[in-house]
């Protein structure tokens, strides 16, 4: 089964906890990624730039509206994601608990709804 792990947290706190490392990935994330790959669980994963760079698009009455910023202004923001392969929800939750972000933010686990055909 595929699961999406969504990393939520306060952007400022996120920058403080895992600053962008110019020479490569933060070592805790590097270890986590390697474990995911080695276990055959990693499908995709990325860190997202801060919500100050976001734009939100919607079409209302045939007109395209573009808004600066994220979809919802909240205290915590979506900061990154992993798409993983896991046997079941419990296994996916184990991976969420190992994600370094679980120590300071929240990792939401969402089963992927498979599309037919």
């Amino acid at each position: 089964m595929k699961f999406m792990l969504l990393i939520h947290g306060n952007e400022q706190a996120m920058m403080a906890a895992t600053p962008v490392n110019p020479t490569g990935m933060n070592p805790e994330y590097a270890a986590y990624n390697e474990a995911l790959i080695k276990a055959g669980a990693m499908l995709a994963g990325d860190r997202l730039r801060p919500t100050t760079t976001a734009a939100s698009v919607r079409i209302r009455n045939g007109k395209t509206e573009v808004l600066d910023g994220p979809y919802a202004e909240t205290k915590e923001q979506l900061g990154g994601y992993y798409l993983i392969e896991a046997a079941d929800m419990d296994a996916a939750m184990d991976w969420a608990g190992r994600c370094p972000a679980a120590q300071w933010g929240t990792v939401e686990v969402r089963p992927v709804w498979p599309t037919q055909g």
């Binding site: 590097a30 270890a31 986590y32 390697e34 474990a35 184990d94 608990g97 190992r98 679980a102």
Partner: peptide, 9 residues
């Protein structure tokens, strides 16, 4: 050790 770190919660 790297894998063990990545697998710790």
């Amino acid at each position: 050790f790297t894998l063990a770190i990545g697998l710790s919660s």
